[in-house]
Every structure is written in structure tokens, then in C-alpha cells.
Amino acid sequence: MSSASSPRAQEPLLVEESLLNATRRRAFGVMFWICAGWIALVVLLALLASVLGLQNPTTENYDSLNQGPTLAHWFGTDDLGRDIFSRVVYGARVSLIVGFGAMVISMSIGASLALLAAYRRGKIDLLVSAASYVMLAFPALVAVIAIIAFWGHDLWKITLIIGVAGIPLVFRVVRAAALGYATRDFVVAAKTQGASDWRIITKEILPNVLPAMVSFFLIGVASVVILEGALAFLGLSVQPPTPSWGNMISESRTYLSQNPWLALFPSLAMILFLIALNLIGDTLRSALDHQEGKL
């Protein structure tokens, strides 16, 4: 038997080339973990809002209207005396449900179609790609507004409509990422070993595309949260008195000069949430690019 040197970890693989396009390993860094912590906190608060003993976000209290931050009301109260902190936390629920819910719908349908199209190519690819172009050519925002206005704007309908509108975009992104892997030799090898199409898609291609999907998912959630805010501003999101970050900002317009806190806290919550999501998405993406560079 011909002998081989025992493989060691971190052997210089094609040392010269990897040096000439010198890329340095990038650790996630402190900012990444701060952002991840912030997102986790927001999600946790939103989930546990009803058991945290917060004040009811819709209970009006005419004894304390338009107050600044106090010990009793950390973020102050609004024009109807409702606790802003509690409203921001409950409002997060709406943003999170719409943001994550819509992206889960877009991702699951869009990515499944994309993986299938990238692997099978041929007619399926042609058909779904054509459909995605047709949908992308449509002004999505106008369509979403029109459908919501016509169909009604409860939380689940909004989530569903935005989710469906996002499918073609997810399809394009995931398909492009998957195409590069679908033609690699390890896919052919799996095929010659008798792997089913399902197995090839889920075990061979998907794990390679997953990091790109995760980072796109997070940036997608951020975009949907903005979209929900915009819809709320137009009065096309959940209806008062149910709080959402969008309609809180919208309502604050009238009292902005008297009570700037009213606009500040929901805006701050939204901005920090979006920055954190984008930063995490970007960090994951560049970590992925780096790994790709090694191959």
C-alpha cells in the first residue's frame, strides 16, 4: 500500500495563490455580538410581553397624558396616557410577526423553487424564472398597497401578501447561489452513487447555499419591517389601538412639538433593530465570502 503523510490541520493549501489575494480571516467581532444580543432581547421581550407584567398597552389613563420618562413610565406616556414602553414592546410583536413571518413565507417557497430550478434546470427552471421576471417587473409596493387596501389589513393578511411579494426576489438570489454548486463534481458523484434528487438538493446543495440564505433572510426581515412601517404610516397596517412601531410613529406626528418622546422611542427601537439586522447579515455574508475564497 502506498503510504501517505498523515494529514495535519491547517496545511498550507496552495500557499502562493492564497497569499497573492491575501484575505485575512475575520472574526465576528464585538459589534456582531452586541447586535445579536440586541435582536435577541427584542425578540424575547416581544415573546414574553404578556407575562412580564407590563402595563396594558391599550389602557388609557387621563391622569398622566404626554409625560416624559419617569420611574413609573420608563419611556413616558402618550396623548391618551398609555405607557409608551409597553406599547413599544407590544409594537415589536407586530414588526417581528410581519418581518419574520413574511420572510419565512418568501424563503420557504422561493428557496425551494430556486433549489429545484438550479438542480433540474430545463423546463422547470425556464418556467419559474420567467414567472419570477414577470412578478419582479411589477411595481411590488404599489401592488401590495392595492391588495391590502382592497382585501383588508389584518396582521396575517399583511404578512401573507408581503411574503408572497418577496418570493421572486428570494428565488433569484438563491437560484444564483445554488447554480454554482449544482454543477460541481460532488453533486455528480452523489448522483452516480444513486442519491435521489431530494437527497442531492437537501444534503449536497442546500448546506452550501444556507449561509447566503441566512444573511439574505436577515436583511429581508429588515426591509419588511421598514415596509410595514411605511404601510402603518399610510394607515394600511394593523389598526389602532393595537400598537405597532409604524402606527406609533404615525400617531406621534400630531403631538410632536408637545411630546417628542412619543416619536423618539418607537423610532429608536426601529432604527436600532434595522441596524443590528443589517450588520449581522453583512457580517455573515462576508464570513461566507471568505470561506468561499478558500475553496
Partner: peptide
């Protein structure tokens, strides 16, 4: 196959 790197799922 020819390309040893592409033959194995990374």
C-alpha cells in the same frame, strides 16, 4: 473527477 476540491462537498 479532475478537480479534487470540487469533488468533495465543502
Amino acid at each position: 473527477f479532475q478537480d479534487p476540491i470540487s469533488s468533495l462537498n465543502p
